[in-house]
């Protein structure tokens, strides 16, 4: 049995260290070693986006990143979206607009939506749809998700 690798990272702003095997994905590390199960595995092949996180601010599928690649980098997950007891407006609007049914895709959609709004504060519906094309939802037909993201963009622009 090969020894694991010690990795130092920042996760949701907190310095975090973990030991993992080189073959483990960042998603496996988050879920199985760090207890951050908000990121989900829907496919393991980058096709569903349920495992979406940010790596140094960039949106990625954590199932396609090795745990060891997180060395010295910043990881953002759904668990870090809210600021204490105040939800991120995307989180509030997903609830308000009924943008989730089963909710398994929701963490990935929130992370991807935030990545979109961080770089484009006034996206068109089409831009929202293409920015979220890497996140599969099988419950909603995306209708209420797009509306929730649009409402959030409007709200954030007013701030």
């Amino acid at each position: 049995m090969m020894a694991g690798t010690l990795v130092s990272t920042m996760i949701n702003g907190d310095a975090t260290e973990f030991v993992c095997q080189t073959g483990e994905t960042l998603l496996e590390v988050l879920r199985n070693r760090l207890g951050l199960t908000g990121s989900k595995e829907g496919c393991g092949t980058g096709d569903c986006g349920a495992c979406s996180v940010t790596l140094d601010g960039r949106l990625v599928c954590s199932c396609l990143v090795l745990g060891v690649e997180a060395q010295g980098r910043e990881v953002g997950t759904v668990e870090g979206l809210a600021d204490g007891d105040s939800l991120h407006p995307l989180q509030s609007n997903f609830i308000k607009h009924a943008a989730l049914q089963c909710g398994i895709c929701t963490p990935g959609f929130l992370i991807a939506s935030k990545a979109l709004l961080d770089r484009n504060s006034n996206p068109t519906d089409e831009e929202i749809r293409f920015a979220l094309a890497g996140n599969l939802c099988r419950c909603t037909g995306y209708d209420k998700i797009v509306r929730a993201v649009r409402a959030t963009a409007t709200e954030l622009r007013k701030k």
Binding site: L36, T37, G38, S39, K40, T77, V78, E79, L81, A82, L87, L90, Q91, F94, I95, L100, G103, I104, T106, P107, L110
Partner: peptide
């Protein structure tokens, strides 16, 4: 169950 599902707390 909305809050649990937007914060990643809901357990699947």
């Amino acid at each position: 169950d909305g809050l649990d599902k937007v914060t990643g707390r809901a357990k699947y």
